[in-house]
Write a protein that binds this DNA or RNA. Structure first.
Lengths: 153, 153
DNA sequence: TTGTATGCAAAACTTTTGCACGCCA
DNA sequence: TGGCGTGCAAAAGTTTTGCATACAA
């Protein structure tokens, strides 16, 4: 599953909203493209981006992450480790994935799925809630950690 | 839906684990029983508990919340407002609820459901992941805010 | 009595903000 | 050129930790 950012569309949206496409913002976007499958924190991004652009400030990283989340280019996630994480937002609708979070090693795996739509419809009908998005986190043990646990027993 | 904490079972578990049942811990538990449907933050709990026991420390609240989460008496939640929130963990298995989070007013409504089990089974089979728990957050607009939005248009 | 728990204060972290300067459009 | 964006440092907010004291078992 390849996920890219439509840069020409993004530039258009920046222009429309009177935002400027600065080198810092480009470099931060590039980091997300280069580390597609990761769920990067602000500090992660800062460290990655510093290599290309050592004078960048952490505040700029935070401000850019907020901007890109508002524009729905990024999605802000929380895996319970005390910091926010971000991933590219898949705009190609119906293509959802969930996160499988290992309680032992903390690894996060993605799981593709569309099944949740049925549930969404049920919720929308029963609750008068206008659904825009959802986020499903599944906690448990990854294969490696299941094996670790078996060896201990 | 009434959700209570089995205190005698909890006392037994405390005893087994060499934990002590202190007045502070009891008062914090009581706060969760008194505010069942709320999703309380550490600060919320601190303010509630202070009325009964003014000398309590915020650190004690945090330590107790962590302990009770480890014991699976409480569930730690994150609604993206920069602080963790907690609710009583429903141990009566199969009885899950999700959170409908309003993007406009921030209100959080609960939605009862078991439909997710089908999806869990599918995930377990396809991914070699041993599922222990899950958390589904649904973002959108509550009825009141839908109406507000319509009036503006 | 003894080791766990508490309260207070300080520290550690993540995230936000103010402000002077820089630079994209 | 004008105004948005940046970097730095300070501030704000949440959560954790060290330590002496208190107290449940």
């Amino acid at each position: 599953m390849t996920m890219t950012i439509d840069m020409s569309d993004l530039r258009r949206r920046f222009h429309d909203m009177q935002y400027k496409m600065t080198p810092q913002r480009e470099i931060i976007l590039r980091a997300f493209i280069d580390f597609q499958d990761k769920h990067l924190s602000a500090e992660d991004i800062y460290q990655i981006v510093r290599k290309r652009s050592p004078e960048i400030g952490l505040a700029t990283v935070y401000r850019t992450l907020e901007l890109l989340s508002d524009l729905e280019v990024l999605k802000k996630l929380d895996f319970g480790d005390g910091r926010s994480r971000y991933e590219i937002n898949e705009t190609n609708s119906s293509h959802h994935h969930h996160h499988l979070i290992c309680l032992l090693c903390g690894s996060v795996k993605e799981f593709e799925d569309d099944l949740l739509e049925t549930l969404e419809n049920a919720i929308a009908q029963k609750s008068n809630f206008l659904i825009v998005d959802h986020q499903l986190k599944i906690y448990g043990y990854c294969l490696a950690c299941q094996q670790k646990r078996n060896n201990v027993d």
